[in-house]
Design a binder for these strands. Structure first.
Length: 230
DNA sequence: TCATTAAATTGTT
DNA sequence: AACAATTTAATGA
């Protein structure tokens, strides 16, 4: 019962770091090559094992990257919010996608064809810099996670998930106030809604977030990150 | 604009 | 998982 996707591709691109250095004509040309598809809540944006033909961005909504662990339990690798792009790893290596992408709510998803991605890679320094920063940030996130995850309690996992979702380096357009239900936070952190609720209350008591109806406000991103160990 | 109702979300057990 | 309480959104007077 989330609001239907409202943002459009143009706004999303203009708020992306890599797009800001392009000439308006270049940007409109790229915009024309990108397809936007609307995905209902809980739907698959793309599945593990599929051939990777696009770089994928979140125009509106919220998605998560999940993987199935050896025992078959779904594990959320990370969430991606408005303005986020992903899939460049498999696109660069020309390999099948390594994880499922699932929408947590009704979302608008942008699909940039491989040819467009490659052309940007060849012509835009800002685009290359963006990818470098993004890969580095992700690397730091995942290293921090595998380092701490088994030692961390549910509270810290929620903190870590939120910190990655509010990462200003990856998602400059995301404000510190995000409309996300506690149920969705639970999905992101791999917890039940009840446990996510307790974790959020603990984080609020610690002064890191402010809980509102249907959303949260992040008061201390650095605190969240250190809380989660990443 | 206000009151009523339904739906969504949250807090608790 | 189930329940009650609270908030929001929608509807109509």
């Amino acid at each position: 019962m989330n609001a239907p996707p409202a943002q459009n591709l143009g706004d999303m691109l203009r708020s992306s770091l890599w797009a800001q250095s392009l000439k308006p004509a270049e940007l409109t040309a790229i915009e024309a090559e990108i397809q936007v598809r609307h995905c209902p809540a809980g739907g698959f944006v793309c599945r593990k094992g599929e051939r990777v033909a696009h770089w994928i961005g979140v125009v509106d909504g919220l998605v998560k990257m999940t993987n199935l662990s050896a025992d078959g339990k779904p594990t959320t690798l990370t969430g991606v919010g408005v303005g986020g792009w992903f899939g460049e790893g498999s696109l660069l290596k020309d390999e099948p996608r390594r994880y499922d992408i699932v929408t947590l709510r009704d979302s608008a998803i942008a699909y940039m064809p491989r040819a467009t991605f490659m052309q940007l890679l060849d012509t835009s320094i800002a685009f290359n810099r963006f990818l470098l920063i993004q890969l580095n940030e992700r690397l730091g996130q995942f290293i921090g996670r595998v380092e701490h995850d088994r030692l961390l309690g549910p509270d810290a996992r929620v903190a870590s998930s939120l910190a990655s979702l509010f990462n200003p380096t990856l998602y400059p357009g995301v404000k510190n106030q995000l409309q996300i239900s506690q149920e969705e936070i639970g999905y992101l952190a791999g917890l039940s809604r009840q446990r996510a609720n307790q974790a959020l209350q603990a984080l609020e008591k610690a002064g890191l977030v402010h809980i509102e109806y249907g959303g949260i406000t992040v008061l201390d991103i650095a605190g969240l990150r250190s809380f989660g160990g990443a």
